[in-house]
Nucleic acid binder design. Sequence first.
DNA 1: TAGATTGTTAATCGATTAACAATC
DNA 2: TAGATTGTTAATCGATTAACAATC
Lengths: 213, 213
Amino acid sequence: MMIYKSISTQTLQRLPMYLNYLKSLPDNQILNISATTIAEALKFNDVQVRKDLAIISSGGRPKIGYITKNLIFDIEKFLGYDDADSAVIAGAGDLGRTLLSYDGFSKYGLDIIAAFDVREDIIGTTINGKKVLSSDKLKDLCGRMKVRIGIIAVPASEAQEICNSMVESGILAIWNFAPVNLNVPDSVLVQNEDMAFSLAKLSKSLSKKLCLN
Amino acid sequence: MMIYKSISTQTLQRLPMYLNYLKSLPDNQILNISATTIAEALKFNDVQVRKDLAIISSGGRPKIGYITKNLIFDIEKFLGYDDADSAVIAGAGDLGRTLLSYDGFSKYGLDIIAAFDVREDIIGTTINGKKVLSSDKLKDLCGRMKVRIGIIAVPASEAQEICNSMVESGILAIWNFAPVNLNVPDSVLVQNEDMAFSLAKLSKSLSKKLCLN
DNA sequence: TAGATTGTTAATCGATTAACAATC
DNA sequence: TAGATTGTTAATCGATTAACAATC
């Protein structure tokens, strides 16, 4: 197993952007790419790009740059896209359905094995090939299948309860789309997917821009 | 108009968390709250919380803290939740529908006035009270209504084209949910909503945690 | 009064950027 | 060779944390 240097959130944030950019290049036409080119395209500092790439790749060559194909492979490998984690999702409403079909999470190394909901009319249906089961079964199934990641896409009012079931079943990380502060033991990792924050960032940048113009 | 000090992305990121926490407190029972309490609940440093709050509020009182009600008001005001921006959304598929109904963006100061799609069977329907119109009409409507924010929730392959229409119509900021790098003039602000990054962060933290245990 | 809390100033830490030698 | 590019070391910048006086 390859050991990586420790990585900052900032770098981790940029890696998917590099990947995205590299993949947007015309297939097989750009065999080599320089950190300078990437930096210009994404409006980053070139040394920053080089430092980021140093963490995950075996390096480029002066005057030539990096081998595009290898770089894509190395970033994907670092991000764990090659080695899927299994997950379940609670809530098969609009948001849940979106997540179940959003550009195939499997591409990103996340294998959603089932969805759970409380609504009788949804239980038993299939979304994007995944069965929707009764929420009662969550604890049992996750325990047996050793699922490590739970995704919460239920209304805010039900989020804590479903979170408790997940924690009891032994889930280690929770990706929370409900706008609530979940209470979990320290051993469980929670990542809040914060629409409110994203929107705040957008509208702040916009109003700042308008002030300057 | 109140003038705020300039604010870092980090602080901006935490403000919605404070708001969320404050709103989760039992109504009218906790009249005053200290930065220390907030910091403990959210696992931040207390000085950091105090500095953040100093930017947006008129201050607390030693030994007592801040007036909860006012703090909520001040954060909402700062984030612009009181003063809605109008927006349109392109793409009324699963993702678009989720966004049209996601906990009412209106609460966050975003007023989505219409959705656009190319699919004949969806055009003319109403989602959460918003009309779905033909994408052909986007440019005209946004221009006339002086819409400033466009949300892109179409498949990656169609994103650039719809983005171009938005830019031509005079939209100033684009909230992009499609996993592509959009090409826009410098005058237009793009914020990518990056599922891939969120997922990367989650799975990296998880694997780091597992290594340590 | 005593002690909790605020807000500010100074110290620390970490990320970004600049400078530059090494390489192809 | 000349010049573009890498990767490293040092300088800068900004955010977080520590220390502490002021206040209720």
